[in-house]
Amino acid sequence: MAFFLETLIGGLMAGMLYSLVALGFVLIFKASGVFNFAQGAMVLFAALAMARFSEWIPGWLGVANPIIANILAFIIAALIMFVVAWLIERLVLRHLVNQEGATLLMATLGIAYFLEGVGQTIFGSDIYKIDVGMPKDPVLMLESVFEGGILINKEDFYAALIAAALVAALALFFQKTGTGRALRAVADDHQAAQSIGIPLNRIWVIVWCVAGIVALVAGIIWGSKLGVQFSLATVALRALPVVILGGLTSVPGAIVGGLIIGVGEKLSEVYLGPLVGGGIEIWFAYMLALVFLLFRPQGLFGEKIIDRV
């Protein structure tokens, strides 16, 4: 039982991170109808910027305090993500308005390659550390309930907290601010939103920017856990099934979908994996998504897709 719970909790923690990446997908899809394949590249790019600046800044400014260096690096990385968002809107999206979903998807694949290339050319392609001072030591919990308790990584715990806080902040932003309302209007109907004076292009920049920040946070968490390296970009591929499961247009869907996939992967790997030779977590999520595509394409929380002639 304790082992099952450990696996479950491990899955939930990993799921929280998937949720974060999935959230980036959902934000952009809602506001621009673009399925952003480059979300993973953005995570990598943001994490690279963060890692390298936090490394360079002490040398440049002569400040040894890691907290200041980290904060400055975070600000710079966020600014860079803003510039990236602005450039993407300017150079790519603006020219592809009203194109089919598949074309936009391929365009973001191009953006992904470009960002991966630029990121590694500027920031290098080794493995870099991000150290934002998250505690690494494991703790025992629920010792009173189970014999021996269950082992949880503190870092995972904090990561999950940060992710949850970010999700809550985004939900507030969407529901309570004027910009958030404009975003939702754009999501519902581009043309109608435009006709009442909502500037589409600015909204897109904002939403890509928010997705960039989400990518930065996800990048920092993953990066401090696993180190910043190229494989971060493939996190997006892992998080893709999440949005199918949760529904492409649903923020809660991204969260719940992420948790389900995270838990499902871990449980299937532990209990099913040994039967078939292991390593099934790579495709387990995809097969789950495939089943959803066949029987409930809008996902758990998405809006039903109606085609009109």
């Binding site: 150079l91 470009f114 290339g117 590694q120």
Partner: peptide, 21 residues
Amino acid sequence: VATVSHIEFMIFGALIVFFLI
């Protein structure tokens, strides 16, 4: 060599976007 391969990525990415547009 690594840099060349990164630049290759950039060029491919940019070309894809260019051709699609």
